[in-house]
Design a protein around this nucleic acid. Structure first.
Lengths: 145, 145
DNA sequence: ATTAACGTTTACGTCAACGTTAATGTTTAC
DNA sequence: GTAAACATTAACGTTGACGTAAACGTTAAT
C-alpha cells in the first residue's frame, strides 16, 4: 500500500495542511492511519473525499457543519448496507432509511433552486458583457471616421 | 416619491437592518437619502440591488469584497455611458472598457465551472437517493413475504 | 404633547474557518 | 550518524460577516 503524507495530500487536494487536520478534527474526514512515529498516513481515497468536500462546499455554499450531516448520511447508508443481512429491518432501520431518502430529496430541490438562480446571475453578467461590447463597437466606429 | 424606511427594506429583502447598514458601510450599496432627522430613505431600486447581491452571493459563493468588485464593474459601465458623449474615448477609456469586458468573460467562465461542478454534486446525491430507494424497496419486498 | 414605535451611531461580542507560531519529535538523504 | 526536511500537538491570533446592547434622537398616532 502506498501511503501519502499530509503534504502530498495538501498538494493534491489544493488545501493546506492546517485545513486537512482541521477537517479531521471536526470529524469531516476519517482519521488516517499513523506511522510508528505518529505521522498521518493517507490513501487516495482521502484525496477523493477531500475533493468532493471542497466541491460540495463551493457549489452548494454549505458550511462545514452542513457538510458533516451530508457525509454522515452517506456513511449511514453504507452502514445500512452492511447491517442489512444481519439485522433484518426493524422499523427503526426503516425510519432511518426514509429519513435519508427525504434528506436527499431536499438536497436535490435545493440544487434545482441553485440552478435557477445561477441562470439569473448569468443573465445579468451577459447583459453587462453585451453593453460593454456595444460600447466598444461604437467606440471603434467613431474611430473609423 | 415613495420612500422606504430601513425596516421596510429589511422585510422586502429578507436581510436584517444591521446587514443593510453594514453593506452600506463597506460600500456595497450606495448611501440612501436621509430625512431631516437622519433616517435612511430607500427606493425600490435599493431593494432590487440587495436581492441581486444576496442572490449572487449565494449562487457564486462570492465574498462581499468580490461582490464589490462586481458592483464596481457595473457602475463603471454606467459611468462610461454617461461620459460617452462628453469625453470622446481616449485610449484610457477604451482600456477601461476592455478591462470590463474581460472581467465579464472571466465571470462567465467561472459560472460555467460552477455549473459543471453542480452537476457532479447532483450526481452524487442522486446516486445516494437511488441507493436509499433500492434499500427501502428490498425492505418492502422482504416484508411482503 | 406625549408616548410608543422606530431610527441613529458607537462599540464591543461572536462564530466559523482557518493562519501562525512555538516547542518538540520523526524521516530521509547523504 | 547527523543535518535538513518534514511532521506533531497546543495554543493563541485573525478575518469576514454580521449580532447585540447602550445611549440617544425622530416620527407617528392618539
Amino acid at each position: 500500500m502506498e501511503w501519502l503524507k499530509i503534504d502530498d495530500v495538501a498538494k493534491r487536494s489544493g488545501l493546506t495542511k492546517r485545513t486537512i487536520r482541521y477537517y479531521e478534527q471536526i470529524g469531516l474526514i476519517p482519521p488516517p492511519e499513523r506511522s510508528d512515529g505518529g505521522y498521518r498516513l493517507y490513501t487516495e481515497e482521502h484525496v477523493t473525499l477531500l475533493l468532493k468536500i471542497t466541491n460540495a462546499k463551493d457549489v452548494l455554499g454549505f458550511s462545514l457543519q452542513e457538510l458533516q450531516e451530508f457525509i454522515a448520511l452517506s456513511d449511514a447508508l453504507e452502514l445500512q448496507k452492511m447491517d442489512y443481512r444481519q439485522v433484518k429491518g426493524t422499523s427503526l432501520q426503516r425510519e432511518k432509511l426514509e429519513k435519508i431518502l427525504e434528506t436527499t430529496l431536499e438536497q436535490l430541490r435545493l440544487i434545482e433552486l441553485k440552478k435557477q438562480n445561477i441562470l439569473k446571475v448569468e443573465e445579468d453578467i451577459v447583459s453587462l458583457k453585451n453593453r460593454a461590447e456595444a460600447a466598444l463597437k461604437r467606440w471603434a466606429e467613431e474611430d473609423a471616421k
